[in-house]
Design a protein around this nucleic acid. Sequence first.
DNA 1: AGTGTAGTGATACAAAATATCAAAAAGATT
DNA 2: AATCTTTTTGATATTTTGTATCACTACACT
Lengths: 146, 146
Amino acid sequence: MGWTERVVAHLADEGHRLTGPRRAILDYILRYSVPFTSEELIADLQKAGVHVGRATVYRTLELLHNYQWLSLVHRPEGEHGYVVAEPGHQHHLVCRRCGMVTAFQGCEIESLLGGLAERLNFRIEGHWLEAFGVCRGCQRANNERV
Amino acid sequence: MGWTERVVAHLADEGHRLTGPRRAILDYILRYSVPFTSEELIADLQKAGVHVGRATVYRTLELLHNYQWLSLVHRPEGEHGYVVAEPGHQHHLVCRRCGMVTAFQGCEIESLLGGLAERLNFRIEGHWLEAFGVCRGCQRANNERV
DNA sequence: AGTGTAGTGATACAAAATATCAAAAAGATT
DNA sequence: AATCTTTTTGATATTTTGTATCACTACACT
Ligand SMILES: [Zn+2]
Ligand SMILES: [Zn+2]
Ligand SMILES: [Zn+2]
Ligand SMILES: [Zn+2]
């Protein structure tokens, strides 16, 4: 069962309708290998001849983001982009060259922040972590060029 | 030597001119106790009767951000806001109630990410970490109310 | 098939950010 | 201190991004 099917099932569970536009957006999203913005998706859908209203794109992405089927990451240029995700605590490695994103779980940061929080009397409820670097493919490409 | 003086000295070093508008913005920035956006600063300067063009505010904030004299953090409502910072590796605790930001250094995350990077063949060059929670003051205020 | 309601999208609108470019002002030079 | 060179500024126009409205559509359920 792939991402789309899980999303569809979950949305149904939550009482949302499976509409044509939502289906089209879900399908299109999977074609991205790098984070995308709402505006980019709108433009790409249009180019591809898929007719979906601007407001619907914004609404659908927000819906998916609320359920954590999409995550936001910082792209190399600075703005936020969406990437497909699975619900739950997750972090990302973002390639500065090609923009590719790799998700990873297993986070030991809570314990790391624990001592700090105690010292500062700050009650920590969550965190956002994202790492930047160069992915395997881009390292190789670079070596070949040199 | 305070933040402003360090910034002024650094900008001079880098060959930038110390203009009236820049001075005004630097002075005003220090009055914020929570992260602020470009638009907020523009509005506040106007209210305060300080006349600085909109474009200049955007340009100056970007300049300071490039030199890391300002950091961007996610505010409780979701958007990005600027906070004064010192160049170098730094992270922030952001209070979800009042928006107050506490910076901290001493970061052991590199080592934590090291093993992961090796497994994934990803060369990590940096990271962004930000923690959310409730600051000391807001915890106390809440207790009193309950 | 009929019904109630979530969802859609054209349009208008608002907000945020950038581009342009003549005029102003820093700082160097004399 | 007057001049010159170059950065910087800011009014304005424009683009980009995101939201509000609301009549209409079509999904889900009986
Ligand atoms: Zn890459
Ligand atoms: Zn984590
Ligand atoms: Zn607080
Ligand atoms: Zn760190």
